[in-house]
Computed example of a mutant assay.
Amino acid sequence: MKPQLSRRSALKTMAGTAAVAAVAASLEQRLVAEDRAAGRRGNVNHSVCKWCYPKVSLEDLCVAGKEIGLKSIELLTLEEIPTVKKHGLTCAMVSGVPGGITRGLNRLENHDAILEWFANAAPRAAALECPQIICFSGNRAGLDDEQGIKNCVAGIKRLLPVAEKHNVTLVMELLNSKVNHADYQCDLSKWGVALCEAVGSPHFKLLYDIYHMQIMEGDMIATIRKHHQWFAHYHTGGVPGRNEIDESQEIYYPAVMRAIVATGFKGFVAQEFIPKREDKIASLHQGVDICDV
């Protein structure tokens, strides 16, 4: 599978008949008009993680998000996705893998349950046009990093035939093990990249979480420039605290976002900060504004 394309990029690669070209041009104009109506530049596909807004219903977040210029609300279960589709949005990252963050692909005993779930979830996600599904390494629990990679490779290669058949991508998230997810194994970009290289398939990529990687290793722009071919998705969050991404925290998001755009990235960037201000939607709006370079 080729890396996930944006709707705009996909349109440009469609067959060159006059009828198809006319449809593509019409849809492209509509997408540009949507960006302009929301005051967006069109360089970034914006998303948000629903779990950060527990007191906002999914319906309300869809309405507010579309007004802000979001194209996606993510980390949803398959059952929740029809709600966002009803509002003309998508789910850029599907959630629900058994074992969650702590019991993942680095343990052979977890593979059967993950494969069983994935074999059912992949065709459903594909039918919903949501081709990215999140997964996790799991915690080390005494497992060394080399063996962790070997075990993950074994598990991922069992999943690849399903991913290839349904044209979906399995995306493992990079998380920090210092503050939020103690003992998590995929906690450095070099470990994640080594795993991608060992798997060697376009159906397996990484979710580069800017918040988590700032805590673990910093040097984000250089890392993005060097390894962007392995990064299928990005998340945001303020450091420290995982709150708003404005000047109250240490990451200068406009520079990071410009580096992402410069790589030619056409996937999604999702806001994954926990707003601490009373007006949660205003904080989300601000975060999208900051990242819209």
Rank of each mutant, 00 (worst) to 15 (best):
N243P: 00
E247S: 05
H111L: 15
W117Y: 14
E28S: 11
S9V: 07
G16C: 10
P82M: 00
V162L: 09
G104Y: 06
T236Y: 00
G237D: 02
K66A: 06
D183K: 10
H111Q: 13
E116A: 05
A113C: 02
K157F: 13
S201M: 08
C130G: 12
Q29W: 04
C62Y: 04
L160S: 05
A282E: 15
E278P: 11
K86P: 06
R107G: 04
P123W: 09
Q147T: 13
R158T: 08
G148R: 01
D145S: 12
A125T: 05
R8P: 01
F265S: 12
D144Q: 14
G267Y: 04
N176M: 15
L170E: 04
K157Y: 14
V23K: 03
H227L: 05
P240Y: 11
C196A: 14
P254F: 04
G100D: 02
I134M: 11
W117F: 07
V179G: 05
L75M: 05
I210A: 04
V56T: 13
K178S: 09
D209G: 01
V239H: 01
L174H: 00
E67K: 15
I224R: 01
N167M: 04
L58K: 01
G200A: 10
T223L: 11
C196H: 03
C49Y: 09
V32E: 10
G237M: 00
H203R: 08
Q4T: 12
R140M: 12
